[in-house]
Amino acid sequence: MYLSCQGLTMAFGGLTALNDVSFQMEQGEILGLIGPNGAGKTTVFNLLTGVYVPQAGVMTFRDRDLGRLSPRRRVRAGICRTFQNLRLFSGQSVLENVLAGSCLRADYGFFDMVFGTPRYFRRERALGREAMALLEKLDLTPYAHSPAGALPYGLQRRTELARALATGAELLLLDEPAAGMNEEEAEALGKVLRALREEGKSLLLIEHHMSLVLSLCDRVCVLDRGRVLAQGPPGEATADPKVAAAFLGGGREYAGS
């Protein structure tokens, strides 16, 4: 199994954010993680990337136990994320942000750097070229040297995606990549994400934009109050009456489009 979560449980103080959550993911799949606010979606990301340690449950990626890996090694293993509330290095340029993402692939030693060995220059040049190619692919080239924090929201989201891609990750965890976008922009983002899948990336995405979820995801996993409510193809899962109740009922507000 590519990515598998079994029985994830996480509580903060008295509040149980996740209760026995299990789901699995195939390679090359786009899996949507949906649910009302406070369902525990971002907590899943935080567990997968090692921000928090789950109280119970097992996570494996390519049959490796993620629980044993430091956050850094998880990125090395090929998992990288974006954030719901953008966390760019906002004073730095877009290019620098992307280059920060590729830091972990700079496989030259300290002395290579100090004495400027050919290996150092070769690797640095390669990283720079890759970063520029990545910007080109995400239509960010005109903004390469602009401070990331000054860009419009949509471009900042794309910069964060570029930074995550620069780590060389093959499984991307995207936390509301279309938040704050209009239909048109969301559509364009969908195209970018599909192109990434064509390249062999797998995507796990949290999204409230239902039209995007329905058109993009192969499967969805619906969370509510820390439990898995339903899983399956988007049409089927969202048709489940329990899901409709969770989204619309209980006086809870649904912040989707």
Binding site: P71, R76, F83, L88, G91, A100, R163, T167
Partner: peptide
Amino acid sequence: DDPLAAQMCG
């Protein structure tokens, strides 16, 4: 600029 984001970039 952001230790957590840096960590999440590996």
